[in-house]
């Protein structure tokens, strides 16, 4: 699903590099977790994967395609759920999804069916014509996920999809991700909620200071580091110091 080899990235005016030779690999058709403390380089890694940011060096392959030369094909095959609600707040969910679907060049009939299906699946059909800005936090997160699913992506990338949502919305999102994975799709996911990652992910990579620290199945990592939870593994490899 994902191959990252010796990737470097330093932002202009940054004091330190964000990624310092990051290398990791996730197999296809798995739910993978990219974990790390604040400032570890998770969001930068995801931004490079989906072409929002250019890497200074190294190689990134997504679903067997090189980001340097095959970005358009990659974008067609991935769905990205950004950490922020990347929707027009003054437009309704229906209008946002119609516009995004048309940018993906989906035929009108198929687009209408998909919008209707996903709005129902995520419990937003009654509020389909309400402006996003009037939605609750959980509703916004769900609408944000739908916007990334319309073109039926092979790989779904989610950056903190459950941040700031209530228990019900969180449960709904996680249930959906499991279902989506069962349908044969790959999922790459970042979160600070390590218990959630432990339950959901088949493979995790913990990064810090732009480098890979450990990677593997959560259970195997717990055994390797003689920890009772993924959170303990996380603290063990990243340290207990508070991050900015």
């Amino acid at each position: 699903m994902l191959l990252i080899h010796d990737v470097h990235k330093t932002y202009r005016q940054a004091v330190e590099p964000t990624l310092q030779g990051l290398s990791l690999q996730f197999p296809r058709h798995c739910i993978a977790g990219l974990l790390g403390p604040n400032g570890a380089g998770k969001t930068t890694t995801i931004s490079i994967i989906c072409g929002l940011v250019n890497a200074d060096g190294g190689q990134v392959e997504v679903l067997g395609l090189d980001t340097a030369t095959q970005l358009a094909q990659i974008k067609q095959k991935i769905g990205v759920v950004p950490q922020s609600i990347a929707l027009y707040p003054t437009l309704s969910a229906q209008e946002n999804l119609e516009y995004i679907g048309k940018l993906y060049r989906l035929p009108n009939k198929i687009l209408r069916e998909k919008i209707s299906h996903y709005l129902q699946l995520f419990g937003l059909e009654k509020n389909a014509h309400k402006a996003i800005r009037h939605y609750s936090g959980g509703m916004r997160r769900r609408a944000n996920i739908i916007a990334s699913l319309l073109h039926d992506p092979e790989l779904l990338i989610l950056d903190e999809p459950t941040a700031g949502v209530d228990v019900q919305s969180r449960n709904m999102i996680l249930e959906f991700l499991r279902d989506y994975h069962r349908q044969g799709h790959s999922i790459l996911y970042t979160s600070h909620l390590l218990e959630e990652a432990q339950q959901l992910c088949e493979e995790v990579a913990i990064i810090d200071h732009g480098r890979l620290l450990v990677q593997g199945n959560p259970a195997a990592l717990m055994q390797l580091h003689q920890c009772l939870s993924l959170e303990q593994v996380f603290l063990h490899v990243t340290g207990r110091g508070v991050r900015d």
Partner: peptide, 13 residues
Amino acid sequence: EEGSLMRIRLIPG
């Protein structure tokens, strides 16, 4: 600021 530009940039084309 709202992120909708990012959404557009994530779409091929």
